[in-house]
Simulated scan of single mutants.
Amino acid sequence: MSLSIALNVNGVPRQVELDDPRVTLLDLLRERLHLTGTKKGCDRGQCGACTVLLDGRRINACLALAASCDGAAVQTIESLADGPALHPVQAAFIAHDAFQCGYCTPGQIMSAIGLIQEAQAGDDPERVREAMSGNICRCGAYAGITAAVLEAQARLENAQREEAA
């Protein structure tokens, strides 16, 4: 059974033929669209390495069937930098040494962006840690991750205020 779906992936409309309706969004991104920044960690929705934004909300791509995403907008880590200019969350992760091995970093960054867009980050480190708890870092870079999320949120809020003024 073949199924055709339409997705907007990183701002680019994509028409994809699925030979198997059980293909996950993660496998579609990595294997068919060659967007390998999104990582396959546990493949069970427990580690967050596969976090992407679907219509602006954080999801574990390993748990979403690609067919269920028909008509949706998907944003992956590949869409963030604008040439050499990093997204504020990426820059904050570097500034706060919020990664060690780097395997979880794409999912951590996408989760942080979703968290900020959902206006759930606030300025409380404990709140950020709780909201990011679906993303596991085996290296233990949590202090840097929390600091990076808080700094990026503050920078993005300041930029919005300056634009409004």
Rank of each mutant, 00 (worst) to 15 (best):
I5N: 05
A6F: 01
N8A: 09
V9G: 01
V9F: 01
N10P: 06
P13S: 09
R14M: 14
L25D: 09
L25V: 03
L26E: 08
D27E: 15
L29I: 09
L29D: 10
R30K: 05
L33S: 12
T36C: 10
G37Y: 08
T38A: 09
K39Y: 01
K40P: 00
G41H: 09
R44T: 12
G45H: 08
Q46E: 15
Q46G: 10
Q46P: 00
G48D: 11
L53Q: 09
L53A: 06
D55K: 07
A61K: 10
A61R: 09
A64Y: 09
A67I: 03
A67L: 05
D70V: 01
V74R: 08
I77V: 15
I77C: 06
L80G: 02
D82P: 00
P88E: 11
P88K: 06
Q90M: 14
A91L: 08
A92N: 02
A92Q: 02
A95E: 15
F99N: 05
G102D: 10
Y103G: 06
I109D: 11
I109V: 15
M110R: 05
S111K: 02
S111E: 03
I113P: 02
I113S: 04
I116H: 10
I116T: 11
I116D: 13
I116Q: 12
Q120C: 02
A121G: 06
A121W: 07
R127L: 11
V128F: 03
A131I: 00
A131K: 14
M132S: 14
N135P: 03
I136L: 15
C139N: 09
C139Y: 07
C139V: 09
G140S: 14
A141K: 06
Y142D: 12
G144S: 11
A147H: 05
E151M: 06
A154N: 11
L156P: 06
N158G: 10
A159E: 15
Q160L: 12
R161A: 15
E163R: 14
A164N: 10
A164S: 13
